[in-house]
Design a protein around this nucleic acid. Structure first.
Lengths: 213, 213
DNA sequence: ATGCTTTCTTAACCTAGTTCAAGGCTTTTG
DNA sequence: CAAAAGCCTTGAACTAGGTTAAGAAAGCAT
């Protein structure tokens, strides 16, 4: 694993209007409804970026200043152990949000590095603006509470799985729950997410192929 | 493990005023400040219960209808696998909140059982009243968002530990972070929380004693 | 008191998952 | 387009942690 590459600086896209503000507005509409004026206020706060595969939007040790919404593409969040090994904490695809929640909430340096695993198009909302939104449009307090709630649910589910399932069972669960990730993330990242080595994941896959799925 | 015992019915305490509403008000004051009237509204919603060791306040498969605040004592939340094995998801001590967040949020049947591991005194706030609070005192939306955020941070931290540390390292981390739990929870529950068997925890403890801590 | 259950430990053996080393295939980069 | 780097797999040797079984000590209920 090449540190220079992981820590490569983000390339900003040339400024230009986002074709796809619709997607993020729909995402929000799932939980709260906004007036046209509130929509304008909100979208005016967003910053658009184009990411190339392997671009990093947050490095371990930095304070997370943005919530990131994925308009298109795929990212992963991971920590790097002392031995240099990578541990994938979460993936995020089109129409998902990602951030180092710990760092974003506490504004302390975080452990997560967030990196694109495919060319991606994202929208950033700064913590500052998020707090401003809470004041000007209190409904957003509800929206972000729901986001955090969903993260928590996913995190707890995963903990339960890690404590109670074997590696193969976890892999099957993963395939069922996130088939789209399976298609776009490299297997070694999935192995890391499952808490096993790529070699062992290979073994599992062979075993399962033998069983004719 | 005896299922009848785990599912023993909760014993309600005789109704009487809580000596210790102060503790919960202080707990809330850490994040939002309330007027006297708001305090009265809030405390009027609380339901006090005395739990004896092994009393269960929520069983697997039920919908979680309450957030529980611990005035004194200690509880644990756990799931039971198909094989009957118990997986401790979290502990909660004096001045902490506990609930099956998934179930409380979604109002779907949950996987968690919540049980007292010592005689305890708790205060219950129903989901209904919680929603009512959101309407009447919107500050509470913030308070519960912060609670959920803290849960999420703890859950993520634990996930990272489970993926990147050995059992011994996790145990050391636990000892440092939750020394009080070590004092009041049985070792087999701690083993379960760490994701190992009690036998293996024993082995670790002996090994560590050998190393003179 | 006296059984009965729960808690913790020890020890011998067992297995799911790791490590190391190597090879083939594909993608990136100069 | 060649070289290098990354990705996936295989197999053999190894280890962290699990299983089974048993016993000692402590708490509880009759």
């Amino acid at each position: 694993m090449n540190v220079d590459q992981i820590y490569r600086v983000v390339k900003l896209s040339p400024e230009r209007p986002m074709k796809n503000l619709e997607l993020i507005l729909q995402n929000i509409a799932k939980h709260i409804s906004l007036t046209e004026e509130e929509k304008r206020l909100f979208t005016g706060m967003l910053e658009a970026r184009h990411l190339k595969k392997k671009d990093v939007i947050l490095k371990q040790g930095e304070v997370c200043k943005y919530s990131t919404f994925i308009v298109d593409g795929a990212l992963k969040g991971f920590t790097v152990g002392k031995d240099g090994s990578e541990h994938v904490i979460n993936f995020a695809l089109k129409d998902w949000w990602i951030a180092d929640m710990y760092s974003l909430i506490s504004q302390q340096p975080g452990m997560l590095t967030i990196e694109a695993i495919a060319d991606s198009e994202v929208l950033l909302l700064s913590k500052q603006d998020q707090l401003l939104l809470y004041e000007k449009v209190p409904k957003f307090e509800r929206f972000f509470r729901i986001l955090v709630e969903n993260s928590l649910v996913a995190s707890q589910q995963r903990l339960i799985n890690n404590l109670s399932l074997t590696a193969e069972e976890r892999y099957r669960f993963f395939m069922k729950k996130y088939p789209f990730i399976l298609e776009c993330a490299p297997l070694h990242s999935i192995a890391s997410y499952l808490g096993i080595t790529p070699e062992f994941l290979s073994k599992i896959r062979r075993r399962m192929a033998g069983k004719l799925k």
